[in-house]
Design a protein around this nucleic acid. Structure first.
Length: 288
DNA sequence: CATGAGCGA
């Protein structure tokens, strides 16, 4: 075929140079100077412009090395670290930062739709005490306690049972006398005997298990993993030395059910964990 | 060996 016999030296893009020959060979060769000690690199090349005049083009660039020199040594070092997480998929150097796509599930202190509790609270009760704004973050109750004093804070999940009497009664009772504006603990309120005892739940410190002889790198998630199979765990805690930030080698695990705690003690006391023999026993209640 | 942080109107 005729096409095949044609010299392949011309590509279609070059055909538009209708003024004839490619004269580039008349130009001086391209020169590359540097990069010098400052990282400056110069490229000098020559071209013909539209009018056929010879033009010198100088391109000056600063290399990556110099850009890095303006960063700290540590930052430069980090660039050579292997990528991890989402960045593994990325081209090296394509981005400096990644936005994590990890999903974080937030727990609700109480289930959706249980807002009738709030409806039970008499707004006047807090008003009479002088615009009380206490809202417990654990159980969501207003006016009784702060989160840190919540009687339910060690419970795995808030149950329907913890709705005690609406505070309307004490709201009305408190102002009768000089106690106006003072806090009345639930146990001393009118009609409190009704909710004392079986109905009233206190913090579950009786189900608190002390774990000693933990290795230094045992953390709370490890304890959770270890104890969770025995039943619902309401809290894990590993004592941390405030000065060194290191584990003090003991911790606590609170179970919702005492039976589960007892089974965990039976099984895990003397259990080899991380090259150490765990000691697991009932914790004596914390001194306040 | 050994018994927990935090705490505000």
């Amino acid at each position: 075929m005729a096409i095949q016999n044609e010299p392949a030296k011309l590509r279609w893009g070059e055909l538009e140079e209708d003024d004839g020959e490619d004269l580039d060979f008349l130009l001086p060769p391209r020169q590359i100077i540097g990069p010098d000690e400052n990282g400056i690199k110069k490229v000098i090349e020559y071209q013909f412009d539209d009018d056929g005049n010879k033009v010198k083009i100088t391109t000056t660039t600063r290399t990556r090395k110099l850009a890095n020199a303006r960063l700290s040594k540590r930052a430069v070092e980090r660039r050579s670290w292997p990528k991890f997480g989402d960045a593994v998929q990325e081209d090296v150097g394509a981005r400096l930062t990644m936005v994590s796509t990890e999903e974080i599930v937030l727990e609700r202190p109480k289930p959706l739709g249980s807002s009738k509790e709030d409806a039970n609270i008499d707004p006047l009760a807090s008003f009479n005490k002088g615009a009380v704004l206490m809202v417990c973050r654990t159980c969501g109750k207003k006016g009784d306690h702060w989160t840190s004093r919540c009687p339910y804070k060690d419970l795995a999940q808030p149950s329907e049972g913890f709705v005690d009497k609406p505070p309307t009664a004490d709201g009305a009772a408190a102002p009768a006398g000089s106690t106006k504006g003072t806090y009345v603990p639930p146990s001393l309120r009118e009609g409190a005997s009704r909710t004392q005892g079986s109905d009233m739940r206190r913090r579950n410190d009786e189900n608190s298990v002390r774990v000693t002889n933990l290795s230094e790198d045992t953390r709370e998630p490890d304890l959770m993993e270890l104890f969770r199979p025995f039943g619902a765990v309401s809290r894990v805690y590993v004592a941390i030395d405030q000065k060194t930030g290191m584990s003090r080698g003991f911790g606590f695990v609170n179970f919702v059910s005492r039976e589960d705690a007892q089974r965990a003690i039976n099984k895990l006391n003397g259990y080899g964990y991380d090259n150490l023999i765990l000691r697991v026993e009932w914790a004596t209640p914390r001194t306040t």
